Computed example of a mutant assay.
Amino acid sequence: MSGQQPERMGPKADEDEKPIGPQGGGLRLRAVLPNAITAAALCSGLTGIRFAITGDWREALLAIVLAGVLDGMDGRVARMLKAQSRFGAELDSLADSLSFGMAPAIILYLWSLQAVPNLGWFASLAFAVACALRLARFNAQIDVDHQPHKSAGFLTGIPAPVGAGLAFLPIYLWLAGGWEWLRDPWVAGPWMTVIAFFMISNTATLSWMSIRPRRNVRLELILFVGILFAALLVEPWWTLAVISVGYLALMPYAWLKYARIKRQTSAKGPTRLAGSDGTTPDE
């Protein structure tokens, strides 16, 4: 109906979630907490740049990791408080662009790429702009019914926080193993450019919605998460490197799984990948 506001998601507008009712009006009091968490994530990401300027690489990476943790919390808190707002959604996108686009680009430039100033800066720009383009694409598609990846429980491309974490893989290994060759700009630059490409690509990637462990392994999953947390405390850089490599290893699995779902859907008719209006979207 004309005059009605389109459905929007509040902070955080997670890519594997469905819209939650129309949002409008001013910022409510109960929305202060989730938006304060988003602001804290933004400050944490930008503080990572400050640590990079002084050469404190461990602190710089930890600041971005903390920003990622806070970024995953704000939306959950907003939904618990029923405090989703358009203001929060916009603030979250701006915070993500700065914390997971601009900040990693500058950190990697200062860590390695400034050795080849022109080409290194272009690689940093590519990553920061790719992150902004990804977030803009997501915001533009919130009200679009035809989202085949999302309908099948997948994401389109690598999410911004994950992209930032993957871009830091050479630094993880450098901090863990002391391999100086990883700091070569001809290693770090192409790597960051590849991650930037996958952030804005149309490839299907796994989302939390697509991970559904069987009942008979849920206790084992709890044990695994506990051990993983302990590993992050004891050997953070090796653990983050293993997590990054594990995510990269799962990407071909996501592509194959999505292709299989598409084939099954094509054989059975427009059911699972259909949009909300019942039509089958084209990619």
Rank of each mutant, 00 (worst) to 15 (best):
T156G: 05
G88K: 12
P185D: 03
M102A: 06
A83D: 03
L273S: 04
I243S: 09
E90P: 10
S276D: 14
L46S: 11
A140G: 11
A140Q: 14
L232Q: 00
A188H: 01
L29H: 00
F224L: 15
N139G: 11
L27M: 14
A274R: 11
P22I: 10
G177C: 04
R58V: 06
D92I: 10
D184L: 00
W121Q: 05
M73F: 09
F224Y: 13
E7F: 13
P19H: 08
S2A: 13
G269M: 08
P117Y: 11
G24S: 15
G157R: 00
V116R: 05
Q4G: 10
G10H: 05
G165E: 04
W121A: 08
A41Y: 04
Q84K: 09
P170T: 04
A123E: 05
L81I: 03
C131G: 12
G177F: 03
I195A: 02
V32L: 13
V32Q: 08
R50V: 10
A126K: 05
S99I: 04
V225P: 02
T193A: 13
S201A: 15
P281Y: 07
Q23G: 07
F154D: 01
W208D: 10
L166H: 01
A241Y: 00
K18Y: 13
R76W: 07
P19C: 13
A103V: 02
V65G: 05
G226A: 08
V217R: 08
P190R: 02
A136I: 12
I53V: 15
A267V: 08
T239Q: 04
G177S: 02
G157Y: 05
E283M: 12
T54K: 09
G163L: 05
H146T: 11
I158L: 14
Q141M: 14
Y109E: 05
V242E: 01
G163W: 02
D56N: 07
A254D: 13
R212A: 11
G178N: 01
L70G: 00
L135N: 09
T193W: 06
C131S: 15
A115I: 01
R263V: 04
C43Q: 06
L169I: 07
I222G: 10
M73C: 13
S266N: 06
M209W: 09
G120D: 00
V225G: 04
L29A: 02
A52S: 12
S2D: 15
L233M: 07
I53W: 15
P190H: 08
G55S: 07
G25R: 06
E17I: 09
S99C: 14
E220K: 10
P22L: 10
D16T: 09
L135E: 08
T203D: 13
N216A: 11
F87N: 12
A31P: 02
W238N: 02
L113I: 08
M251D: 07
T38D: 14
A164P: 03
V245H: 07
A152N: 07
E90I: 11
